[in-house]
């Protein structure tokens, strides 16, 4: 039998956390680390997550109506008087309650989100960063990681995709225009020096870009070139310094810019657009292009001609978005419309099921046509 | 903001793959749960049930008996109540974490795989 005691002053600093099998694995790995994190700074009071190096779990507080007492065994100095009334073996140990809890923290694996709220956009001008990082709330990558509800691996992946760059230690995001210029210059220089697009090394690529550039006014620093390689390429396995250019990503980037330039005010026939698109690449660039690569960036107001349609101009309410899309184009090829609406499929329904909730679907030959209900 | 979770206290436990198999963990902790409110005095009294250990004031409030072969448990509360319950395996193990605001440290101190649960109405002591 155990004597049960409780401390008169309860410690309120203890919590109970659900340890899923994945979390237990992380705990058991001596090289792993776990961190509690939240977006922003202490005062912002964002939602707390738990992160390993690679994964993010959202904490959910589950209150309950029972009394839970957390107790610790101790050795009593006293001779406890024998309780003979209950006919039980006399107590052999003592436990003292040191905390009570009325809730548990459940843990749900989620996608971590990089917090870029306070990160400045850099367009290549020479006045970034300001001296001493004045007016820059996020002063280092460590700061950025600490203020994001996101694991390190997920953070760095998103950072690379966004065109994040670290200049003199200060994180910034390169503007679209600056990314375009830097990409263009990088491609031209790499081709001029006959560099291999499948194995672009940072040092070589930087040297190629900076050959014959006046260093005083050169915005294409090694950090910028690294950002270009991260955004438009994939790290070669087992080689920390080498990237394979993702030709499709590059082609799509040029294609979106071309749509914006040539198909904003009015639509353009696809054949003509392909020629225009190709013309925006550096001369002799080896990139294959197809209209289908730009799905999610254009609609077809009449027949087959294309017109630029950026998602950020569409309503974020799913019903209204479908309404707008059908107003712009009464019938859609399913493959053309899906990229415009899939981000609003928050419940993760099968795409057919999702579309049928808001639209009509019918087969015409090999195609699937989507129109309004 | 971001803070590391220290697992220093768990190290030996995790390395040896030992974990709780009965009422208390290898590190000496126990989780007790009652379906109800447990009222206990919060102020010291000159009564044999009040003791001081390592400068902590304690009140003795109950007696717990576990029958390990059947996982049954009996809890005597005060002088008047008797509760019947059991040792229950948790669906998901629970980490015991201390958030020490003073030192700015977060520490996982133990892992519970079982709790002692009392969900029936208290019976009078016969």
């Amino acid at each position: 039998s155990l004597n049960l005691h409780e401390r008169l002053s309860i410690d309120r600093s203890f919590r109970l956390l659900h340890l899923t099998p994945e979390l237990l694995e992380v705990l058991k790995d001596p090289n792993s680390k776990l961190q509690f994190k939240a977006a922003g700074n202490d005062e912002d009071d964002g939602d707390v997550v738990l992160c390993s190096r690679e994964k993010t779990w959202l904490l959910r507080q589950k209150n309950h109506s029972n009394t839970t007492m957390l107790m610790h065994e101790f050795t009593s100095e006293q001779e406890t008087p024998l309780e003979t009334t209950f006919g039980l073996p006399s107590p052999m140990s003592d436990f003292a309650g040191f905390a009570r809890t009325t809730f548990e923290y459940e843990t749900k694996e989620v996608s971590g989100i990089l917090n870029v709220e306070s990160i400045p956009i850099h367009n290549g001008s020479s006045d970034f960063p300001p001296a001493d990082g004045r007016d820059l709330p996020v002063k280092s990558m460590d700061d950025l990681l600490a203020s994001s509800a996101c694991s390190e691996k997920e953070c760095l992946l998103q950072w690379g995709q966004l065109g994040g760059c670290v200049i003199k230690g200060y994180p910034c995001i390169l503007s679209s225009d600056f990314l375009t210029k830097a990409l263009h210059v990088t491609l031209m220089s790499a081709m001029a020096e006959s560099l291999n697009f499948s194995r672009l090394r940072l040092g070589e690529t930087f040297d190629a870009v900076n050959k014959d550039i006046d260093q005083e006014s050169n915005p294409y620093t090694i950090d910028v070139i690294k950002t270009i390689l991260e955004k438009y390429g994939e790290k070669v396995k087992d080689d920390d310094d080498c990237w394979q250019l993702n030709q499709k990503k590059v082609a799509v980037w040029y294609g979106i810019r071309a749509l914006k330039k040539y198909a904003s005010q009015s639509s353009i026939p696809p054949a003509e657009f392909l020629i225009k698109w190709k013309s925006t690449f550096p001369p002799y660039a080896p990139f294959d292009i197809e209209i289908e690569m730009l799905r999610g960036w254009f609609f077809r107001p009449t027949g087959s001609s294309l017109q630029y349609l950026p998602k950020n101009t569409l309503p974020s309410d799913i019903k209204e978005r479908f309404m707008m899309l059908f107003k712009l184009q009464s019938q859609w090829d399913m493959d053309d419309i899906v990229p415009f609406v899939e981000e609003l499929n928050s419940k993760g329904l099968k795409i057919d099921v999702f579309l049928m909730k808001y639209a009509r679907k019918r087969r015409v030959g090999k195609k699937v046509i989507i129109s309004s209900r | 903001p971001s803070i590391n979770v220290s697992k220093r206290q768990l190290q030996t436990l995790l390395q040896s793959d030992q974990h709780q198999t009965s009422v208390s963990t290898p590190l000496g902790n126990m989780m007790l749960e009652i379906q109800g409110d447990l009222e206990l005095p919060r102020q010291w009294s000159e009564d044999q049930r009040f003791t001081t250990i390592d400068k902590e004031q304690l009140v003795r409030w109950g007696l717990l008996h576990i029958d390990p072969s059947r996982n049954n448990a009996i809890l005597f509360v005060g002088r008047k109540q008797r509760l019947l319950g059991s040792l229950v395996k948790l669906d998901t193990p629970l980490g015991l974490i201390k958030f020490n605001q003073q030192d700015g440290i977060v520490e996982m101190q133990d892992i519970f795989y079982y709790k002692v649960l009392f969900k029936s109405r208290p019976l009078p002591i016969m």
């Binding site: 600093s13 009071d45 707390v48 209150n63 | 447990l38 009222e39 206990l40 049930r49 605001q101």
Partner: peptide, 28 residues
């Protein structure tokens, strides 16, 4: 016996509500 040591039983058990956790509540 002025010292009250007592379980006030609750008929049911409820734990349905879940909410996100704020940074400040970790420390309070």
């Amino acid at each position: 016996d002025e010292i009250r040591i007592w379980v006030r039983y609750k008929e049911g058990f409820s734990d349905a509500v879940r909410k996100n956790v704020s940074w400040s509540s970790l420390w309070s």
